[in-house]
Write a protein that binds this DNA or RNA. Structure first.
Lengths: 193, 193
DNA sequence: CAGGTAATCGGACTACAGTCCAGTTATGCC
DNA sequence: GGCATAACTGGACTGTAGTCCGATTACCTG
């Protein structure tokens, strides 16, 4: 059996998927995310609305798909990359402090670089942030780094609250990205004594 | 001049305002906030949609109006009530640690008691949370209690991130309200060493 | 290459938030 | 009490997210 692969994606579906992602990226660049409607994306991609929603669920799902590549590269750096972001040097960093610092720094960079898109992926529908797979990944990672605390899981959620796109967007507009970054770093430090 | 009062509110406007608030409260209790449309509220209150939006701006504004009384009572307890929540005992609490603990405890109580309403007031439109007056109040208060930190303003925002209705709603559903409460208390403690 | 099957497509449809403005009505002044 | 004015009212209107289902088309089998 040469073709025992799972049903995979139909050729036309793959073409439409690419067309939608390209059209969405172009429109977002040109007009800003907020100003682009799903109708406009469907029209620009040359597909119907049904196709758009069938493939991506909603606007948040579309944003997640556009972020996919960036997100994966950060996740791979965390899982397999060099220390301090990646694993390794477990001896001279017993409290995982440096690795947590590195994660916060890298995540804030990622967040600021793609703020509008991440913000849409987290706020398009209520509770979206906590449902998407990426959040689970960040949460698991931070939980492991907070293993010395009484309740690593809950504390990881609490730390991640300060990294919500909506929060960083609003606070950076008021006090500047630098102070937000330092404050969250200070919080991470406080949790790893 | 007996009637030098400012233009005040017209009698019919006051009647409609009360009718809307009553109708909204009743419908929210009965069907849950998410399931109630602005059309339904207007119809139940016997007013037109134009009136509803003129008076309250949007769904978030309506939620804020419904929360007004509760919110003010917490704010007054903070400003004028007894220690540790209110002012006083400045000597045996030099780092404001106890007062911050009391604030977190009181705020979490308030949040859990009115979670759906507060959540709507914060998430109805993007960025709503940071625009409403109440957030400014909580932020100013926490900033004062974090005066010993390098950047009280930014740290206050960071602490308040963990008290966002959206965040507490999602995390409490996963790990329970008690662990959320303790984790945020732990964070407040970590910031007041 | 032909036919069956199941996934996919796409545009008409619904429901909802929020806007607008012409008509109405309360209020203050004479 | 009558009138000018400004504020209020309410329903028709717009634009958008998201749903639905009949028509279409790609893929697999023989």
């Amino acid at each position: 059996m040469l073709c025992s692969s799972p049903p995979a994606e139909r050729a036309d579906a793959a073409r439409n998927r690419a067309a939608v992602l390209n059209a969405a990226a172009a429109l977002f660049r040109q007009h800003g995310i907020e100003a682009v409607s799903m109708d406009a994306i469907a029209a620009a991609a040359g597909v119907g609305k049904g196709t758009l929603f069938r493939r991506f669920g909603d606007k948040a799902g579309l944003a997640v798909a556009l972020l996919d590549e960036q997100e994966r590269s950060l996740q791979e750096a965390i899982l397999f990359g060099p220390a301090p972001l990646g694993p390794g040097t477990p001896d001279d960093d017993p409290g995982s402090r440096e690795r947590l610092r590195a994660f916060v720094a890298a995540y804030v960079d990622y967040l600021l670089a793609h703020l509008p898109l991440i913000r849409m992926s987290e706020t398009a529908s209520p509770g979206a942030r906590y449902r998407i797979g990426a959040y689970r990944f960040w949460h698991r990672h931070v939980s492991l780094l907070l293993q010395k605390r009484d309740d690593p899981e809950a504390d990881a959620h609490t730390l991640l609250a300060a990294l919500a796109a909506e929060h960083v967007h609003a606070v950076a507009a008021e006090v500047g990205a630098t102070r937000v970054r330092q404050s969250v770093q200070g919080l991470a430090d406080a949790l790893t004594i």
